[in-house]
Amino acid sequence: MSVATAAPPATPPARSKAARTRWSQRLSANVSSAGLNVAVLALTLAWIVPTLGLLINSFRPGGAFNTSGWWTALAPPFNFTLDSYRAVLGASDLAPSFFNSFMITIPATIIPTAVAAFAAYAFSWMRFWGRDWIFLALVGLLAVPLQVTFIPLLTLAVHMGLTSGNNFFGLNAGFLAVWIAHTGYGLPFAIYLLANFFRVLPQDLFESAEIDGAGPVTVFFRLVLPLSVPAIASLVIFQFLWVWNDLLVALIYVGGTPEVAPLTVTLTNLVGGLGQHIEYLTAAAFVSMVVPLIVFFALRRYFVRGILAGSVKG
């Protein structure tokens, strides 16, 4: 968490000092500000308690969490160990499965995000027959339980030769199948989210661009995308997380053999079938969390006010 605390606090560039003073004055200065701080802190604290328990237990000897609460470990005598991390980092297939997770997750994030952005642009700024109904149907498909799609889709994939081990124009065909599947599963939400953000972009922007003679492709890449960076960044994070943490879809389409297994499969397999050494999962959770958190921190700087601010004036 040192990364988080070391980062400078967000000072929204567009918010002037005057506005801040006024706000403080109105709420009788420090009292309410302190109250606000306390409220936010309390809520945050309540939220991290479960994760904190996991973190502390991940450093305790196996079996200790069954006999005493994790908070007791914070008082002497200290008895911490790296055994769980040693077991997780020593897992024989860890490195290739990290690699596989990236192989699965990166395209399965880029493709649906891009495809959704194209569609969301059309749904929010173009007029065509049946637009609203198609859009609604797409949102409604968010409710399709993924499990009902597995058998028909895998049958299709097998017929087309899109299974692990097969070569598809030089590509590992199993990966291709899982990218396509994740794209389909992720699109309803992605389109829904992006269309909502695109729709509220100021109309005069588009009008002035049109007057300047810019086509829709130019408008999309030069205006819509840059202005929707916070929305796209959050979509990228969610899609990345869903795919990264997914276990079932990967097992269905690419399988769990070491050559293609993603990190989730490898880490789950550390624990015995009946739950022996379940403490390994505590460390595994943090090992697997590292990459999504890096993605989150990397994209966090796009969540700032004022991306829109400069352009609205024009």
Binding site: T51, L54, N245, T264, A285, P292
Partner: peptide, 9 residues
């Protein structure tokens, strides 16, 4: 952070 935790954990 909870978002980044898989449902197995």
């Amino acid at each position: 952070m909870p978002m980044a935790i898989s449902f197995v954990a």
